[in-house]
Structure formats: structure tokens, C-alpha cells
């Protein structure tokens, strides 16, 4: 899923987490639009109306109404937000564990369930013939099986980095000395891109994450060949 020019919204979701996030985003946008239109309309009316009520000093009823209604609007945002938050954190029994380690300035991946799959993932230069998406392609991509429950453990080896793939709805800081776990379930095969999301030094912008989700049979074939 390559992010394209002038796309305003979120990238298409490719995981249940991202579906939740997209739903929450769209829902919140509806609320925001309603509020913006209502407030904007009122501001326009106030500004364009020439009449003034000299005797108006207080109006308790309207004060109560415009305090209580926003409380319920905020509640209606908070509850789905909490639901999405807890769904993202929900741990499942993983069938595969992958470790992502942030370095200055590249990611390295370890598949320790297979003997000895461990590689670095550097950005491809723009001049490379394989480089389709500028600043997002890597020499070695992270290969994962689609339709599987994957645990990704994220850490850093020097400074804090952050491992993120927007279309899969995952982002976690890579903190040296700490292992952060995110749960990944890719519900279609394809290529997904992300970038380091915690400013980590000079080449922060040039350590992309490229993830290839392939059917299980191909993944097994790849893993056996690589290990």
C-alpha cells in the first residue's frame, strides 16, 4: 500500500486494528463536521445580524443546554475511542514472533523461531531500479505470512526509534532496553510501507519499513530457504 500524492484520508486498512481506527476516525470526523458547521453558522449569523438586545444580561437555560449537550457529544467520542484503544492492545496467542530492532539508521529483523533468520533492512537509494516508492523501499523487506497472528517485538539498540506501519494500524516506540509488543494480523497479501516515527538523528527520514505480506505457503518456503 503506497501512500500517494494528494491523498487526504488514511491509507486503506489491511488489518482489523486499522479497521477499528478508520471507523473511529470517520465517526469523529462526522461529529467534528457537525460542530464546525453549527458553530460556523452561528458565528456568521452573529456577525451579519445588525440587531442588538440591550436588555439581555443572562440566559441560564441556554447556558445549561450548551454545557450538557457537549458532555454527551464528548462521551460519544470517548467510548468508541476507548473501545478502539483496548482492541489494539488485546493480546492474542501468536503463531509467529518477529523482532524489529531500530538502529541509527536502519531497521534489523530477527525471526528467532526459525534458526538464524536475521537481517538488516536499509533504504534503497532513489537511483535504484527497484525503487518505486521514493524513500520507502528497502533492500531487505520484512516478510510476514498474511492471515496469521503475528507478535512483533520492538526495541532500539542506540536511541529511541519508532516502528510504524500506518495501513496495519501499528506504531510503537523502539526504546533501548525495553521490548514493546504489538499484535499484527494482515488480512490481505501485499506490500505495506511505514517510516521511523520518532526523531532519531540525521537519517531519521531515511530508515523506512517495508513489509511484504505473502500467503503462508510462500512464507514457509521463504523461511526454510533463508534459515
Amino acid at each position: 500500500m503506497v501512500p500517494t500524492w494528494s491523498s487526504f484520508g488514511l491509507q486503506n486498512s489491511a488489518s482489523p486494528s486499522m479497521e477499528q481506527l478508520t471507523f473511529f476516525h470517520d465517526f469523529t470526523m462526522v461529529v467534528i463536521t457537525l460542530i464546525t458547521v453549527t458553530v460556523g453558522l452561528n458565528m456568521f449569523l452573529i456577525c451579519s445580524c445588525l440587531l442588538t438586545n440591550r436588555l439581555l444580561l443572562q440566559e441560564q437555560v441556554v447556558e445549561i443546554v450548551w454545557t450538557v449537550i457537549p458532555v454527551f457529544i464528548l462521551l460519544s467520542i470517548a467510548l468508541p475511542s476507548l473501545k478502539a484503544l483496548y482492541l489494539l492492545d488485546d493480546p492474542f496467542t501468536p503463531s509467529l514472533t518477529i523482532k524489529a530492532v531500530g538502529h541509527q539508521w536502519y531497521w534489523s529483523y530477527e525471526y528467532s523461531d526459525f534458526p538464524g533468520i536475521e537481517f538488516d533492512s536499509y533504504m534503497l537509494p532513489e537511483s535504484d531500479s527497484l525503487s518505486i516508492a521514493r524513500l520507502l523501499e528497502t533492500d531487505n523487506s520484512l516478510i510476514v505470512p498474511s492471515f496469521s497472528q503475528i507478535r512483533v517485538l520492538i526495541t532500539g539498540s542506540d536511541v529511541i526509534h519508532s516502528w510504524a506501519v500506518p495501513s496495519l494500524g501499528v506504531k510503537a516506540d523502539a526504546v533501548p532496553g525495553r521490548l514493546n509488543q504489538v499484535m499484527l494480523y494482515v488480512n490481505r497479501s501485499g506490500v505495506f510501507y511505514g517510516q521511523c516515527s520518532e526523531i532519531c538523528g540525521a537519517n531519521h527520514s531515511f530508515m523506512p519499513i517495508k513489509l511484504e505480506a505473502v500467503p503462508m505457503a510462500y512464507f514457509i518456503k521463504w523461511a526454510l530457504k533463508s534459515s
Binding site: D89, P91, F92, T93, P94, S95, L96, T97, D113, F114, P145, F147, S148, R151, L153, A172, G177, R178, L179, N180, Q181, V182, P215, M216, A217, I220
Partner: peptide, 28 residues
């Protein structure tokens, strides 16, 4: 799908002692 996943090698299961995002102690 489960037959495909059964081809995968064993991985550390969910452990109720470490239910959080921070898995440092699980490893340690």
C-alpha cells in the same frame, strides 16, 4: 488456515504474567 499455521515452528505463547505491551520482563 490452521493447517498452514501448523507448519510454522513453535513460538512463545501469550503468558498471563506479562499481559502488557511491555514484554521486557517476559524475555528477561
Amino acid at each position: 488456515m490452521s493447517s498452514a499455521e501448523s507448519q510454522l515452528p513453535w513460538t512463545a505463547p501469550f503468558d498471563a504474567r506479562y499481559p502488557n505491551m511491555n514484554q521486557t520482563k517476559h524475555c528477561y
